[in-house]
Design a protein around this nucleic acid. Structure first.
Lengths: 153, 153
DNA sequence: GAAGGATATATCGCGCACGATATAATCGCA
DNA sequence: TGCGATTATATCGTGCGCGATATATCCTTC
């Protein structure tokens, strides 16, 4: 795995944490794709719905804060969910700048079908629940440190 | 974190391993971006170069196998690297179907500058080397199990 | 050596991510 | 009250990922 000069070990693909995260994310996406395709959803659309299923009627910015995505990503995504009839978008009455996203009947109903997805993914990971919790916790901590560092500069 | 009905805990965003991986990947990308911008590279372009710096003159398919990316992603990416003058693309003489990617002088020279990137990222993660190795190993194992499962069906 | 299948790469379309910029509403403060 | 600054969302352009399809080369088998 290591080579002769120091730069080689440093730059070896398989030594990169980032590549491990990057490729695991793609692998997870590949695992989700056939399951979500049955619901007609993409993975980011599924994430947005997870947030709305937790609490309906959130602002675009609130959803973005949870997903760490800006409106340049979310606005088109939410418009697609609206076009599918899953959510409604309306300007807030108190503050006309804000856009409130609320689930339609159809969007709420999809929650029951979506509940079948996590167990399938859990099985596909082949991890114990402990493994999952630990890995999740470590990744959340990593993300937090990375984001804190980028804020600082 | 858990709610009253079972679907709530199952579907809570913060309980999803996939979201932890997804958001950690984005956070890492955000950390890399300013460093790679100094080299004029995107993150996937950097990954392709890592592979060529390990061994020059690989086929598109070989690079794709390492990155788990197909030619629909790689061909345009490699053409952009070619347009930047970092790599050359030529058909193999033995097998005209294959396209060999080789580093230009400029592409090889960039390796020295790129060696500055991993230490910066390592610092930004705030992880110990042990943490990194462990996390990397677990993620590689997860990816492997996920990909093995998707092959099976 | 011609036909059919397999292999390697390329092309196209769509949906993210995200930097940069725009627009409109609200707030702060003189 | 009015005006500059801030805030919330939207728009635009570029570069991935990836499913679907195309094209060209090679390999096999008769």
């Amino acid at each position: 795995m290591t080579r002769q000069d120091p730069a080689s070990a440093l730059l070896a693909l398989d030594n990169q944490l980032c590549f491990a995260v990057y490729s695991a994310a793609h692998a997870l996406n590949r695992a989700y794709k056939p399951l979500l395709a049955q619901l007609g959803l993409t993975y980011p659309q599924y994430l947005a719905l997870l947030i709305l299923w937790e609490r309906d009627g959130q602002r675009v910015g609130e959803i973005g804060a949870r997903l760490m995505l800006d409106t340049n990503t979310l606005t088109p995504l939410l418009k697609r969910l609206e076009a599918m009839g899953l959510v409604a978008r309306r300007r807030s009455a108190e503050d006309e700048r804000q856009v409130l996203i609320s689930l339609t009947e159809k969007g709420s109903a999809m929650r029951a079908r979506a509940a079948a997805v996590p167990p399938e993914i859990f099985a596909a990971t082949g991890c114990s629940l402990d493994d999952i919790v630990r890995l999740r916790t470590e990744l959340a901590a990593l993300r937090e440190r990375l984001d804190a560092g980028s804020d600082a500069r």
